[in-house]
Design a protein around this nucleic acid. Structure first.
Lengths: 197, 197
DNA sequence: AAAGCAGCGTGATAAATGTCAATAAATAAA
DNA sequence: TTTATTTATTGACATTTATCACGCTGCTTT
């Protein structure tokens, strides 16, 4: 099985060698090229991916045709449209590779099997789910209470590895801003920090 | 046990009489008066409440002292700071009764016990969790992509029973707007709809 | 009835953000 | 290197939203 994935499962889930084998037996390796879609609107997300290499964006397209980025994923992140995955409904989202990327794929049936039969795995996912829930809460709070500038600063400090790897206009989309506004916010921030002397 | 709660468990979870008894044996009834707190910042939400009667708001207080409403709950809704509940961390939220209210309370230990021993209960909660996740996604999408006016309209059509029961300035807070702005948006909306003739 | 309070509406003005258009800078392709 | 292509910046202007101040209404409480 793919090395970074094994390491992740050992560190985060404490899986035993036997358990790692069991996960391996239901895992698929997948390469996907830049700008290709892992999932498209209308499809059902009946799998979950683990990013081994590369990066992804998950976005929805508004009625006006504009793309709105819900989520990024880089190495060691899980990626799927979890809403579609959990409800079995057609997805409202696209998942696009931002670079040539590599994934481990686990289908929904296998995933649920692991949760039922492997307590270590279930415990790991429960932890992630709880953290994810909290992250959603924090993002909603941020959206309804914080200024664009502070939202941007928080993003940078929270996701430094994403911030310096992904085009600015995508971060703007994630934050619910236009690229122009984010560009200006950045300029102001530079001015401010140089005043901090 | 409290009638509306029993009915809810039967309808949504298909619980048997024996199962209802089991839930009853770990449930507590609680009355709370208007403007009282069910939970305060810093406390750990080690319980989940089911609203039998009345209404609640869950909010955070920003650094400037402003209150930002994350969530409402009325009859037949569950209420807790789920982030605190799941992670066992001190809550960043207050939960306040907006009217004289009544709840069924289940502590965390009992809750987890029900999930482990009662598949019908677990299934019901899994469904709710999935829907809740989707609702969060939709709210984030709404926040980053939609205008204040559309956000308000969607709120009204999505939660008609909440909208006509709760002060407007709280809805504004929930939507991330000032009360003044929401007041003006409403006036515009009236003007528009009267032009629809 | 009078006083107090909570909620809502509105005007004037300021600040934040979006839109459009043009260009520069950076990166990839030829 | 030269040429395309993508990404980022900037200016001028329009729109949206916030802020501050004030008054109105309806409901309690006294």
């Amino acid at each position: 099985m793919v090395q970074p994935f094994v390491q992740y499962l050992r560190e985060k889930g404490g899986l035993t060698p036997a358990e790692l084998d069991a996960v391996a037996s239901v895992s698929t390796f997948k390469k996907i090229r830049k700008n290709q879609y892992l999932l498209e609107e209308g499809q059902i997300s009946d799998f979950i991916g683990f990013v081994v290499k590369g990066s992804f964006r998950l976005f929805r397209v508004g009625e006006d045709g504009q793309e709105h980025i819900m989520r990024f994923a880089i190495e060691n992140w899980w990626i799927a449209d979890f809403a579609s995955f959990m409800n079995g409904q057609p997805s409202k989202c696209y998942i696009e590779a931002l670079e040539n990327s590599e994934l481990v794929i686990i289908t929904k049936d296998h995933w649920n099997g692991l949760l039922e039969t492997m307590p270590n795995f279930k415990h790991m996912i429960d932890m992630l789910t709880a953290r994810n829930f909290e992250a959603h809460q924090n993002r909603i709070y941020s959206n309804i209470s914080e200024s664009a500038e502070i939202r941007y600063e928080n993003f940078v400090s929270k996701f430094p590895t994403i911030y310096n790897r992904i085009p600015l206009y995508m971060i703007a989309s994630f934050l619910g801003l236009t690229r122009e506004t984010l560009s200006r916010i950045r300029k102001q921030a530079v001015k401010k920090s140089s005043t901090d002397l």
